[in-house]
Design a protein around this nucleic acid. Sequence first.
DNA 1: AACAATGTTCAGTC
DNA 2: GGACTGAACATTGT
Length: 261
Amino acid sequence: MPELPEVEAARTVLAGALRRRITDVDDRDDWVCRPHRPGDIAAALKGGRLTGAHRIGKTMWCDTATADGDAGPALGVHLGMGGRIVVTDSAAQRPRQGTREAGWDRFTVTFDDGGRLRLVDKRRLGRVRLDPDLSGLGPDAEGLAPAVFRERLLRGRAAVKTRLLDQSVIAGVGNLLADETLWQARIDPRSRVRDLTRTDLDRLHRNLDRALERAIAHGGVHTGEVIEHRRPGGHCPRCGAELAHGTVGGRSTWWCPRDQA
DNA sequence: AACAATGTTCAGTC
DNA sequence: GGACTGAACATTGT
């Protein structure tokens, strides 16, 4: 699920776990917590608190304070392809042992009130790490100035969808949001950015803003207008043409061959 | 059984 | 060295 709108919702959930003392950390999943070793994250966090929840694109992190109140390492969290953040307020809300969901817990922080912060991720592509490197991320996709959007996209020559998906160009756009935005803007995902006019790029930017706003308001990128039609035999909800399917930027891509030309 | 999946990263190529 | 491409990653659902 997670693209910018979902991750922003997850960040809000994270923010509900701030200020409580950390009594235990389960970081035994060495794949999700790589390159740390089991126990490293626990040692860094136990006795301290989470003090802030932030996000750029699809990457989240929490500020931390140590038991002494000094600044601790940041706790980076990425949801990968399907991770979720679940915060409970007390022991009473813990998932029962043996519950299916409990089997997908990849990282857990337990607080002194019995509440927990869990990364639930069946695909195990989520990541947790201390002091995550954010230097490779471009500016967050929300609230970009039109000139910045144009300038950053035009730095490369790949297909426009590939540029949108590149997190170092702008951060937060995923596969569904890219397809929705390009469909709304009536731009062929395979177009080279250098072949687009300034008018095209500004229209693309406006539609990215709208798609983001809409997804946040409606509860996720899956609520996009064209998303439900992204399947074999799906038709364009605007003109009725059968959607075309292919691979762009290494990702499954659906577009209307009639009005995204 | 084979393949695709809302993401990132790494090795290889130009 | 930078930009770009495709496979790999772990796991589930179809």
